[in-house]
């Protein structure tokens, strides 16, 4: 599903995802990380065209296996032994630590899934174009180049098939030689092409002045509002982390700092930050209902 929020200015969207990633990675507090995981899964399921539970599962299982099963076998910190393997204690603390750690990694992966959809090539180029227009141009060229390269390779391969080459009865050596040949054609083709490309670039003044970067995005008033709210909410949460409100120790013995009023306020702010895209979506729906679709 396409969310209205994804159409906001790329800086707003990028800052939202940036805060979510930073705040997830800055603490080892299970509550914070838990909240982050829940929302990251919600968003990544919404933005992906089909439900991608399979991806979630496939990325989650190895992470959990690694941090909760393999890691405790080698790390023996902690004071609560659960059982012994080869006279070495497997402690509860390492397992819990591994669990929280996996949740964090998983939620980071999910946030990046969302990033992938919301910050597409065009927005990515825009964001980097602000840093360096040349870098932006390069990214744009690469984005064009990859599918072109693949298409050309396919075409070259088809021609070899047309000349009577077939994979079925070819030995490994034959296949390798063939691949080398196809690659060599691809490279010469591309080089030949790049001469024309560079001519076209130079005759349009490439490298003469300081480059600017063209884009089609407009900064709207709603973007300012959205950005301010996000920064404000994130600032509160960061202050909380700064004041060590969310400290949690796992070793040698688990200890979670008890929540006070401010830390609860911080958590509320964190949740509010996480639901900003939903609020925008709701506002949009409401506007539409009021304006036309009565």
């Amino acid at each position: 599903m396409k969310m209205t929020y994804a159409m906001a200015h790329p800086l707003v969207v990028a800052s939202f995802l940036f805060w979510m990633l930073i705040l997830t990675m800055c603490t080892m507090n299970p509550v914070m990380i838990g909240i982050s995981l829940v929302f990251s899964i919600v968003y990544s399921q919404i933005v992906s065209e089909r439900m991608n539970w399979r991806f979630l599962l496939y990325s989650a299982i190895p992470i959990f296996v690694f941090t909760m099963v393999i890691l405790p076998l080698f790390s023996h910190n902690g004071v609560t032994p659960l059982f012994y393997i080869n006279n070495m204690a497997v402690t509860m603390e390492t397992i819990v630590f591994g669990f929280v750690m996996s949740i964090m990694v998983l939620s980071v992966i999910q946030w990046f899934q969302v990033w992938n959809v919301w910050i597409d090539g065009e927005r990515f180029i825009y964001l980097f174009g602000r840093i360096s227009p040349t870098l932006a141009l390069m990214i744009s060229m690469v984005i064009r180049f990859i599918p072109m390269f693949l298409r050309r390779y396919r075409e070259i391969h088809e021609i070899q098939v047309g000349m009577g080459y077939s994979k079925e009865n070819a030995s490994f050596g034959d296949k390798a030689r063939m691949f080398g040949k196809e690659l060599s054609i691809l490279v010469s083709w591309t080089l030949e092409h790049s001469v024309d490309t560079s001519m076209s670039m130079e005759s349009r003044g490439y490298g003469l002045g300081k480059r600017t970067s063209f884009h089609l995005f407009r900064w709207k008033k709603s973007d300012t509002v959205c950005m301010l709210i996000q920064v404000l909410l994130a600032a509160v949460v960061i202050t909380g982390i700064w004041m060590e409100k969310f400290t949690m120790y796992y070793f040698p013995k688990m200890w979670l700092k008890p929540f006070d009023g401010f830390s609860i306020l911080c958590l509320v702010c964190f949740v509010m930050l996480a639901i900003v895209p939903f609020v925008i979506e709701g506002k949009e729906l409401l506007c539409r209902r009021l304006n036309g679709n009565r």
Partner: peptide, 16 residues
């Protein structure tokens, strides 16, 4: 053609 989008290609010379 240098860039990946039509609008970007049109703007290429002006960017330079």
């Amino acid at each position: 053609i240098v860039t990946d989008k039509v609008w970007h290609e049109l703007a290429f010379g002006l960017e330079s």
